[in-house]
Each structure stands twice: as structure tokens, then as C-alpha cells.
Amino acid sequence: MTLLATADAGTTCYSRLTNDWLCWQYVSDYRTEITDATLQHLAITLVSVLAALALSFPLALLARRVPRLETAILGVATGLYTIPSVALLPLLVPFTGLSPVTVVIGLALYALTVLVRAFLDGLRSVPADVTESATGLGYGRGRLLLAVELPLAVPVVMAGLRVATVSTVALTTVGSLVAYGGLGNLIADGVTSDFRAELLTASVLCVVIAVLLDVVLVLLQRLLTPWTRTAAA
């Protein structure tokens, strides 16, 4: 043990005996592992949110057209939120196996519950006189939706998208249950092997990813809604 200690001490700040929380040596030595985990995290998050986005728009339109379906869809969405992620992922495993698909389906379902609501609220926030004017000007249903209602719904939808994205970044870590958790894999490994540098680095990176994606979405919203800027100025 003393031999090991002398050989080990001072060599790296992430060695078993030092086990520092902050350790740049760890970051440079494990660069590929950290990069891979970060890319996996990003990929899982983006695919899940985009899939949820693509599904939630038609679902919201359907719910708007058929009020009875709206109650059902929102009810299922609320019910889904009560199923913990720790439970949902294992529930999917018998069907999709230990694969990234399992994580993506689970995360997309959670994001879907937020986004359907956001689309419904967003479309509802469009003032009635605006849609009436557009109809009076001869806008058909499709054009009314794409050229008038959707752009005006952007602020509310984007608010929902931001919540969904940031939550999905955080939830991706739970994917480590099925070995596809991106940075969550490093966190899980950090807990079981008491590896502090790994644990803290992965946790900080999670928050960094969430904040960066949030900033991107805010910028995107500014691009999509140029009229709000003149109002604010």
C-alpha cells in the first residue's frame, strides 16, 4: 500500500489517492472518452427533441380540431409525466433492447407532453380578430395556419421548446440505465468507482450543454420573430 502510494502520489490529480474534484489532467487524458460521451449526449437529446417536435405539431392540430381528443391527449400527457424515467426506460427494454432507441423513445415521450401543450397554448394565443381578418382577406385554412397562426404562436411554442430541451438534456443522464446516457454514463461510472474528477466534469458539461442549447433557442426565436424586436426597442 505504501509502495503504491509513493508510486501514485503526485503523478496525477485523479489518482485513487488524490481523487481531486477539479482535475485538468483528467480532462486531457480522457479527452476522447469525454468527447464521445458529450457527442452521444447531444445526439440523443437532439434526436429526441426533434422527434417530439415533429410529432407534437400534428397531434396539437388534431387535438384542436377534435375537442374530445384534446381531453384525451392532455390526460395521457399528464399521466405520462407521473411515470418516472427510471421506470419508463426499463419498461421499454423488453421491446427495444439496450439501445439508444430506447432512450430516444422515452425522452421523446416526455418532451412530447410539454410540446403538445405548448403548441395548443401557442395557437390559442393568436387573437381572434387577427384570424378573422386573415379569413376576411381570403386566406384558406392551410395558409392561415402557416402564414398567420404559426408565426404568431412562435413565442409560446419556443417557451415550451426551451423547457423541453433543457429538461431533456438533464433527463438524458438517466439513459445510463441502459448504457446510453451520454454524460450520464460517466456520472454513473463516477459514482460506482468514486471517481470525483469524472463525476464533476460530466455534471458540469451537462449544465453547459443545457445552457448552450438554451442560448441557441433564444437566438433562433429572435430570428423567427423579427417584429418583437422593434416593439421592445
Partner: peptide, 9 residues
Amino acid sequence: VGRAVPTFA
């Protein structure tokens, strides 16, 4: 910010 910190982390 609170939402961005994974509970698991």
C-alpha cells in the same frame, strides 16, 4: 438554471 442541473448528477 435549476431545471438544467440533472437531478441524477
